[in-house]
Design a protein around this nucleic acid. Structure first.
Lengths: 236, 236
DNA sequence: CCAAAAGTGTTGGCTGTACACCCATGG
DNA sequence: CCATGGGTGTACAGCCAACACTTTTGG
């Protein structure tokens, strides 16, 4: 690798696929571009990484600048390095994804000017996105769908206190299939990482459901062996 | 993302973690560097990606230049973008991995001059590698260990015709644990993607074992549904 | 005939899945 | 009292793990 002397004639960016769950729908964060190239198109939030920040730090910074969210547990997704993916020159992009809790979210007001606005868009019926962002989104969506079977990522999307029905409907939305209520509850509770709260749902016009909390400490305790490298984590 | 005008002051490289199985050991391909930086160190094979090739194509080219192997099913692993990972400037590296069959392999003679030699080294007791290559290797090894439980990657490492005992010992080496012979065979054969050949092992001083072949066409047929997105593939 | 590895079944426990009805609450 | 979702148990099937001896072959 590092023998042909590097030419330093390229740039790299990060692009973020940020998932949220709102009104029973899975959504991602998009921006509307106000500048060329792809002026007026919808795009994933992203930007050029600075020369003096790691790509992980850059991803966190850019996410913060676009959403005000700090310390999000973002994860690297994949790197897209097609020759012509950016019209202005060679820009390789490292895609990240995150799952965030967006209940009680204030309006999103982009800090940078190149985005006319930032907004949540349902993943169903996503419009065509700028650059290769549609492909990036699809890669991210496949990843979280698959991961949902192994890791407790659903709790990142839900409010801190949730009902089992909410949890189930989130699984159903992501996996795009119906699940059996009794089996789902039995399995979830059997893991032992859901903490039943003394409270109940309020303001509903039917029997109020129990609220639960995800106990990450217990989760780590229970699954530490398997996460170490056996295959890891619960399955839906 | 692509709004701050790109500065084109960076470079990116690829580094390959290439696994092979030889003499009952899992090995990876290393080079010995003959130039600064990290002169005389061992390193993963890699190089700077050209301005006019995609990173995937670059990875294939570099692998070919170092091993003579074409059309290897390389896969992207992870991108490493620490600020100071390369002494000469900002070089982000995209790591790839591949699992290859190396029986009857001729000697490896690097085509490029910056590598004094290329050789297979057991993954046990790997020396400290140049740059952040040790971390890259560890990421790759974790990945294949995990993936072995879901995908038929073992067959990429074995000769085309193999015995069930060879297959089992490969699993044992990668997973670093003993497996039960009867259960292993029962499960492997139950999948239905192993084709029993009319031949047997030759030249052994004990009862000759049956030879098998991996039937990828059958594998695809059997697992297409699950690979589509349910969780996919066989488990060890 | 000996050494070395090939090859072969059964059982018990656990896990996933299919399936339907009564309960509590607010309006 | 009705509409709405909350909440609950059982039975069957398939999968995994544990476990030990006989067979074949070459030397």
């Amino acid at each position: 690798m590092e023998q042909d002397l590097p030419k330093f004639d390229s740039a790299f960016s990060i692009d973020c696929v940020i998932f949220g769950f709102e009104a029973g729908e899975l959504k991602i964060l998009l921006i509307e571009r106000s500048a060329e190239p792809f002026k007026d198109w919808f795009a994933l939030p992203g930007n050029i990484v600075g020369h003096d920040e790691s790509i992980d730090d850059g991803a966190k910074r850019i996410l913060y600048e676009l959403t005000g969210l700090r310390n999000m547990p973002i994860q690297q997704l994949h790197t897209f390095g097609g020759v012509n993916r950016h019209p202005l020159g060679r820009v390789v992009t490292v895609a990240y994804f995150a799952l965030i809790r967006l209940t009680g979210q204030k309006e999103l007001t982009p800090i940078t000017e190149y985005a006319r606005k930032a907004f949540w868009h349902p993943v169903k019926e996503l419009p065509t996105l700028a650059f290769d962002h549609t492909e990036i989104f699809q890669t991210a969506f496949r990843r979280i769908r698959r991961r949902l079977n192994y890791q407790p990522i659903a709790f990142d999307l839900l409010p801190e206190k949730f009902t089992l029905t909410q949890l189930q409907s989130l699984y159903e939305v992501i996996l795009d299939k119906q699940l059996d209520k009794r089996n789902f509850r039995k399995k979830m509770l059997s893991y032992g990482f859901l903490k039943e709260l003394p409270e109940k749902q309020k303001g509903v016009s039917y029997r109020a459901a129990k609220l639960y909390k995800f106990d990450r400490r217990k989760y780590n305790k229970i699954f530490q062996n398997e996460l170490n490298l056996d295959a890891g984590g619960p399955k839906a």
